[in-house]
Design a protein around this nucleic acid. Structure first.
Lengths: 199, 199
DNA sequence: ATAGCGACCGAACGATCGGTCGGTATAGCG
DNA sequence: CGCTATACCGACCGATCGTTCGGTCGCTAT
């Protein structure tokens, strides 16, 4: 049926596969993502699709990387113009809540579901996820420290403690939106963040 | 090989199946729980095992119910003797943190993973989970209201807001323990709770 | 003593899983 | 133009999924 595509078109095909993988994985989980379903959704054969990645694990990793790019574009990039420290921290949290509220991923934040799906299992997916969370920990911690230096947060602030609580708010928001379909929980998240970041 | 067991032994068999299901589901997810794996773990045939429940969905529901019993026994029962309101609320949170710290379920709180696994899907499992969360919401809300009436929490406390933030702390704790194996995060959870419940 | 219930087994079902293989047709390069 | 690299397909693999079926055998009630 479909003959060979040009290199440029092949890249677009690969792109479409990853995009659809991210959406499907957010709905069904990274493990529930199946090659057959994905192929039929995109009008490809399983073998043609898998040719782009080799293994399912490689596809999962590609999806996770793409999700990280989207996350960065949604949360960190908009906050970039803000001044380091508390202003940027506030911008990050606002973008984060908005990202959950708008359901950028149809089944909720892919990292939240993936971390609870893969926290126990070993393997490349687990390792990559751990690295990604660690990177975000680092970025958040850096901003918190800057805010403390600037006097915008109390001097005795424990960055790890604050990061821990920030994650909690975001996970609870993701949970409420996805389980109960209650997007208005975003106002509760904003209130919680306001209290956490009050100087 | 194994002949028929008496009715009492059959109940014990059913019990063993459910117990093992809860553990497996906390590690692999309610969907990753497979009949074949479960049967071979317990030295049963797939058909003999499934005969107790009929369908996989019924087994998942039995596992979820059992998990709820354990959760109640771990979190609510120990807090029962405490006075209604803030004392009981503190007891509940302490037991909750301890339950996560001790990893009562080997793969972390089954409800946390299950809610992120099933929040999108329709079906009996989703419905049951939603009901269970709703029940806990109600219990927590009742204690919070009692604490407000007793003057142990500020009069302008929004119970739904507090429940939202309590869930966040527990989810973040579960995440940290399971992804990073860092049980010491329990001290961060206790600090966060102390601040949330400070009069 | 015996009939029947039911817990359990072993074999098999169709479906689907991730993955392999050989072939085909074209795009890009010489 | 011809050559090669490769994007893709269709057929197929063994394994495993949840589920069904017929049969066996011990417990229990008569």
């Amino acid at each position: 049926m479909s003959p060979r595509r040009s290199a440029a078109e092949a890249l677009r095909t690969r792109d479409r596969i990853i995009d659809r993988s991210v959406d499907l994985a957010s709905l069904e989980g990274l493990e529930g993502l199946t090659i057959g379903r994905l192929a039929s959704d995109l009008g490809l054969s399983k073998s043609g699709l898998l040719g782009h990645f080799g293994t399912k694990e490689a596809l999962q990793i590609a999806a996770l990387r793409r999700a990280a790019e989207i996350f960065n574009a949604e949360i960190w990039a908009p906050a970039e113009p803000a001044a380091p420290g508390l202003p940027r921290l506030r911008a990050v949290c606002a973008a984060w809540i908005s990202y959950l509220e708008r359901e950028v991923f149809p089944g909720g934040c892919l990292f939240v579901s993936a971390t609870f799906e893969y926290d126990g299992r070993a393997g490349a997916v687990h390792a990559l996820m751990k690295r990604q969370f660690h990177a975000w920990d680092g970025r958040l911690t850096a901003e918190i420290r800057a805010a403390v230096r600037a006097g915008d947060l109390p001097a005795d602030t424990d960055p790890a403690q604050l990061v821990f609580e920030l994650y909690g708010v975001m996970m609870s928001l993701n949970h409420t939106i996805q389980l109960n379909g209650d997007r208005s929980a975003a106002v509760r998240a904003r209130r919680a963040i306001d209290r956490l970041l009050a100087g």
